[in-house]
């Protein structure tokens, strides 16, 4: 079973790596224009969103911390990258480091304050922090740096990574980013630390009784997931060539929730499938129904919360288990 999963993952990665070439061969169009270029872009966005969703799942699905402020990290990554690239003209490697540092600091601050309370209090506090950042991103006081409500436009992305000129390069970089994050989170969740995360989710009191300092572990989960989300936000800003207040809005947090819940919380593949599902379906619905498609999404989300609490992956697993039980 385990080996099969490994093979499946590797097969999928190779398929995704070959995808641009296959599509170019199938359509007969050159690889850097037309349909192949468009679908490279679509999938690059899916990869970025997948990392964002997985980072949320590390917090919610694995550690059981329901934060409603995840957009804060996503937006912070985008804005940090944008401001440093545009106003300070830092090289990209330094920007990546800076994004990580900013995310660690934010994660420590927000974790240290919000993790003092539990359950619904935590959701309120994290939502309030995210909303504060959203308000600040729109504040006219910082227009010079953030562009206020217009957002930070025209971020100068290094020429070799330009999503418009070097689309294939961007595709591979975001694929590598996604694969790297996947393996990183897998390592974390399968490590002893990850086991403590799961123990906290299942029963925090018991985890503390065994002797773990659960506060530190929760803080670690928050920082780790914050860093990943910030990196995803940075990639998103590079892709869009801008960072805007919308990245910090509650809808961005809801997006993370949606992807995680639809795919299946507490699994690694779930949020990634959810990200692909939502982005591609969103594109399809957008072309079919125009601007009303978020309504359909919301209704689908409510339906899933009510009837499919463990998402696609959860439903699939219980289906398999039921089939096996029937056969036995």
């Amino acid at each position: 079973m385990k080996l099969q999963n490994h093979r499946l993952t590797f097969g999928l990665i190779i398929a995704l790596a070959l995808f641009p070439f296959a599509l170019s061969w199938l359509t007969g169009e050159p690889i850097d224009s037309g349909t192949p270029k468009f679908w490279q872009g679509m999938l690059a966005q899916v990869f970025i969103l997948a990392v964002y969703a997985v980072s949320y799942d590390l917090l919610m699905g694995y550690t059981g911390i329901l934060s409603f402020g995840h957009a804060l990290f996503f937006g912070a990554g985008g804005y940090t990258a944008g401001i440093l690239l545009k106003h300070a003209a830092w090289p990209l490697w330094a920007v990546v480091l800076a994004v990580i540092v900013v995310a660690v600091i934010l994660g420590l601050f927000i974790g240290a304050t919000s993790l003092r309370v539990q359950g619904v209090y935590l959701t309120m506090v994290t939502l309030a922090f995210a909303q504060m950042m959203f308000v600040l991103s729109e504040a006219t006081d910082f227009r010079e740096w953030t562009g206020a409500e217009d957002g930070l436009q025209g971020i100068p992305v290094p020429a070799w990574l330009s999503p418009t000129q070097q689309r294939l390069m961007f595709y591979f970089v975001s694929l590598a980013f996604c694969v790297f994050s996947y393996y990183l989170v897998r390592r974390v969740t399968q490590s002893p630390t990850g086991r403590v995360f799961i123990a906290i989710r299942e029963n925090e009191l018991r985890a503390r009784a065994i002797g773990y300092n659960t506060f530190l572990y929760k803080l670690l989960a928050m920082v780790a997931s914050g860093v990943l989300a910030a990196l995803a936000g940075m990639m998103n800003a590079l892709w869009n060539l801008n960072a805007n207040p919308n990245m910090l809005a509650t809808s961005t947090t809801i997006n993370a929730l949606l992807m995680t819940i639809i795919g299946g919380a507490g699994t690694l593949s779930g949020p990634m499938i959810g990200a692909a599902f939502i982005h591609l379906l969103g594109y399809g619905l957008n072309t079919a129904f125009g601007p009303r498609w978020p309504l359909l999404f919301g209704l689908a989300y409510v339906g899933i919360v009510l009837f499919l609490p463990y998402g696609f992956v959860g439903a699939w697993r219980s289906l398999i288990a039921r089939m096996k039980a029937k056969r036995a």
């Binding site: 619904v120 809801i254 929730l257 309504l295 919301g298 409510v302 919360v305």
Partner: peptide
């Protein structure tokens, strides 16, 4: 109609009401 079935799953109430906000705002 919506919250009553979820009294046994507290976290899902929060998820549901957040989703309802999204739906209602769209409407």
């Amino acid at each position: 109609a919506l919250i009553r079935p979820l009294y046994k799953r507290p976290i899902y109430q929060v998820l549901l009401t957040l989703g309802l906000t999204f739906v209602g705002t769209e409407i």
